[in-house]
Simulated assay, not measured.
Amino acid sequence: MSYNVGFIGYRFIAEAHANALARLPMFFPDAPPVNRHAIVGREEEALDAAADRLGFETVTTEWEDVLDAVDVLYNLTPNAVHPEPSIAALERDVPVMCEKPLAATLPEAERMAEAAERSDAAAATAFNYRFIPAIQHAKGLIEEGHLGEIRQVRGRYYQDWLVDPEAPWSWRNSEEMAGSGALGDLGSHTVDLLRYLVGDVVGEFDRVGGRLTTFVDERPVPGESGTRPVTVDDAYTAHVEFESGAVGTLEASRCADGHKNDHLIAVYGSEGAIRFSLDRLNELEVKTDGDRGFESVLVTEPEDPYYDHWWPPGHVIGWEHAFVHENYEFLTALDGDVEYHPNFQDGLAVQRVLDAIERSDRDETWVDV
Rank of each mutant, 00 (worst) to 15 (best):
P302T: 12
E285A: 15
V221P: 00
D257V: 09
E271T: 04
S253Y: 01
A246S: 05
D257L: 12
E224K: 13
T227C: 08
V299T: 13
L264I: 14
G314Y: 13
S270M: 04
K287H: 15
G223Y: 07
V232E: 06
E224M: 11
T249E: 13
C255L: 06
E243N: 09
S270T: 10
Y268K: 11
D233Q: 02
A266P: 00
H239M: 07
D279V: 02
D233T: 10
L250S: 10
T237D: 13
Y306I: 04
P229Q: 13
F294K: 02
Y307T: 11
E301M: 07
H263K: 09
H263G: 09
I317P: 01
G314K: 08
H315W: 08
G272D: 03
P222L: 15
F294V: 02
E271C: 10
G272H: 01
E283C: 01
P313E: 15
Y236Q: 02
Y306M: 05
P305R: 10
R292V: 03
G223F: 07
T300C: 06
G248R: 10
S253W: 04
W311H: 14
V286P: 03
V299Y: 05
C255P: 00
N261I: 03
E251F: 01
F242D: 07
P312R: 15
P312L: 15
V221R: 12
E283H: 07
H263L: 15
D257T: 08
D289C: 06
D279C: 00
D291I: 00
S296I: 11
S253G: 05
A246P: 04
R254M: 12
R254N: 14
L264H: 08
I265W: 03
F276S: 04
S253P: 01
A273T: 01
V230M: 08
V230Y: 03
G245I: 01
E271K: 14
T237M: 12
A256K: 09
D262M: 04
D289S: 15
Y268S: 08
G293P: 02
E301C: 03
P222S: 13
L264P: 00
T237K: 09
V232F: 01
V221N: 04
S270Y: 08
L278M: 13
H309L: 05
D304Q: 05
R275V: 15
I274H: 09
